[in-house]
Design a binder for these strands. Structure first.
Lengths: 227, 227
DNA sequence: AACCTAAGAATTGTCGACAACTTATGACTT
DNA sequence: AAGTCATAAGTTGTCGACAATTCTTAGGTT
């Protein structure tokens, strides 16, 4: 009886979690946070003994990592963590600029007023963090801000694309290439302007500001990479 | 010896093809072209006997279909072809508008002059097809036009996202929702303008025209869906 | 020494069987 | 009759073994 959490009769409280799920999550965080390096080989036998599960489970987990574009696999050769190039990170930011720009536009149109007030109160909390310069929480806060706008777009295709795919990739690139978190202080002001545009339901402006915000981040990265 | 095609010594001419590869491709075309209907269950045992392979192969193929967002799977329940809603198709077109708009902009900057002349000669061929109104080839031609611009963006993240993911989804939605191919005659003129902007290396205009082009397609679909 | 060849080792792909879970069936209670 | 519960049947998840392929290494040839 591994499935404990059920309502008395009807639907389960949480989705069923297989050991492949857990292995996938574990591997994903290990890759994203750099404990498994870029280009590293994912040996099925090795991982199998390490996590105490069969190779089938490992293969399942690797399949999902491939779906996230975090690893690549060649037939009869094996799976490797994707190798990172500075150009690849730039390309990713171009995609982000486009998609998150649209997310901001749709968010201005589709966010509920409750979601908007939540977004603004989130920024109030961040304002305090900026003063105290708690860089760790600012990294998480940045993710959180963008995440809420993505969700606020109410476009499920877009949400899936960004939250299940691109975001993990961006985080991995940042860690692997030794980038610190986002530009803290300046970025915060940009966040405020974006939130204001959304609150005003100004879709065009929200898109422009978000694109510019991400463009700045990209340029910031380009500058660090090619001094 | 299933791997025939090798050079005398070095790298194989074609990538190795596993039976999971073939099963995946077969299932994908069956789904995209509507031979397996939306919402249909993909029973592992059934497919296993149908294609004469083990369940492991079927599971591998289904994993890749999930990566394309063509099927969804719940743990201990099974995989189903994604169910289609008109809203979902609209959402997809919003994503396309954003991504292909960027593709056009990048193509104007990055396409080689050879790629550009190829693109223009493709349109010359299409011009003939429009006269003869060969609707089948125009469907393929539309795909081909967009495909070349995507490739011309030279952004590998974007290329993967569109060609391995979104395009198959769009085709499936179109078939399932009984949409005919794209708006033939008017769309052709739009293609010509986009190609011209790219040839002129006018990135901004190329993006605007492409976004407008896809917006028109979306509105065309919205009109057909809600009369 | 460099290069090709062939056997051996190691890894991935595929298979069939069993375990765990979900759904369907039917008896039992109120 | 409706609902609950237990059992049965069917499906998916996991496992270990074998087959097919790739990589390694030792040997021989020029």
């Amino acid at each position: 009886m591994t499935q404990l959490a059920k309502k008395s009769k009807g639907t389960p409280v949480v989705e069923a979690v297989t050991s492949a799920d857990k292995t996938f999550i574990t591997l994903r965080t290990d890759i994203v946070e750099g404990r498994i390096l870029a280009g590293a080989k994912l040996s099925e036998a090795e991982l199998s003994t390490k996590y105490g599960v069969s190779r089938a489970v490992i293969r399942e987990a690797i399949s999902r990592l491939m779906a996230c574009h975090l690893v690549e696999r060649k037939a009869n050769v094996g799976a490797r963590v994707v190798t990172l190039s500075p150009e690849g990170l730039i390309e990713l930011y171009q995609v982000r600029e486009s998609l998150e720009g649209m997310a901001a536009r749709l968010a201005a149109q589709n966010m509920t007023s409750e979601q908007i007030t939540d977004l603004q109160s989130l920024l109030d909390v961040h304002a305090q963090g900026v003063k105290d310069s708690q860089s760790y929480y600012q990294e998480a806060g940045d993710v959180d801000f963008h995440y809420r706008i993505i969700i606020g777009s109410h476009n499920s295709q877009l949400i899936t694309l960004l939250t299940e795919g691109i975001y993990h990739l961006v985080r991995m690139y940042r860690v692997q290439l030794g980038m610190a978190g986002p530009r803290v202080t300046t970025a915060f002001a940009e966040h405020q302007h974006i939130a204001q545009a959304i609150a005003n339901r100004d879709a065009e402006l929200a898109e422009i500001l978000m694109r510019r915000h991400i463009t700045y981040s990209r340029q910031n990265i380009e500058h660090k990479l090619k001094p």
